[in-house]
Design a binder for these strands. Structure first.
Ligand SMILES: [Zn+2]
Ligand SMILES: [Zn+2]
Ligand SMILES: [Zn+2]
Ligand SMILES: [Zn+2]
Lengths: 132, 132
DNA sequence: ATAGATATGTTATAACATAACAATAAACGT
DNA sequence: ACGTTTATTGTTATGTTATAACATATCTAT
């Protein structure tokens, strides 16, 4: 938590871009948004993303190859979250309650597995889009 | 289920390659295995994979950009499976029990979401590797 | 036969991600 | 302040994953 506060310049820039956007962004979308701030190569984005993900301030959506700012300012239990992704409106809801961590703990126990990273993603249609 | 039996030539070839391998394979690994059978382009693999996934006979591992044959000969409830992936030995265990479908159903209900596709993946170290 | 549907082949290109190396800048003990 | 270490940034090139667009062939039903 002490380390979470100090972001490098590039990390700050990337996190700000993700924070302004409501939906997920690919690394290359982020790069394009930051060309005005001097970014020129994908690696600048990927390096910042790696750090931010390590801090729990950004999550990677595996099924989209995209990234999104943590909706909790920073996940305490890093990696224990589920993402509900609407394919119509691109809205992503992050769910981090006990049911998620209990399910994952149960699954790990049942398979005698030590999980270091987890990914739960649901793709479909959100309530708002379904009604519209 | 009636459609599941009739595979096209290319689908058969791709499924056989995946069936012979114990671990996950990328599309390009599959392509290389099938050059001897006349495959020349990635699209031949991707098209077959798309169909096989639709039939539930192959699963895509989002966190690996790789594919694996269904360990059940064909998942009845397509897409409702969890994958436990060892990063040391590459072994993948497919879990399809009620706890998985109940968890997903609960999550969907809680978020008023209609899920059409789901992905649950745990990355870490399996029991065998941990002991070794 | 022939029309429509399905499957396949081919080339090119888009989209996503990392390797390798060079240069700077910040942190730290002396 | 000083040199040493560590972290950060910049740059070029390349590797990896996936699809678009178009051409051809095969199958199926009438
Ligand atoms: Zn979070
Ligand atoms: Zn929606
Ligand atoms: Zn399966
Ligand atoms: Zn293992």
């Amino acid at each position: 938590m002490s380390e979470n506060c100090k972001l490098s310049n590039n990390e700050r820039l990337v996190l700000d871009v993700l924070g302004r956007e409501t939906g997920p962004m690919s690394a290359y979308m982020i790069l394009d948004k930051l060309r005005g701030s001097g970014f020129r190569a994908p690696l600048q984005v990927y390096r910042a993303l790696e750090k931010l993900i390590g801090m729990g301030r950004v999550h990677r959506l595996e099924s989209l190859n995209a990234f999104i700012a943590c909706s909790h300012m920073s996940c305490e239990k890093i990696g224990v979250a589920a993402f509900v992704i609407c394919e119509r409106c691109e809205h992503v809801q992050e769910v981090c309650d006990d049911s998620v961590s209990l399910f994952l703990a149960g699954l790990a126990e049942k398979t005698n597995f030590k999980a270091s990273k987890t990914s739960i993603e649901l793709r479909g249609v959100c309530d708002a889009c379904e009604k519209a």
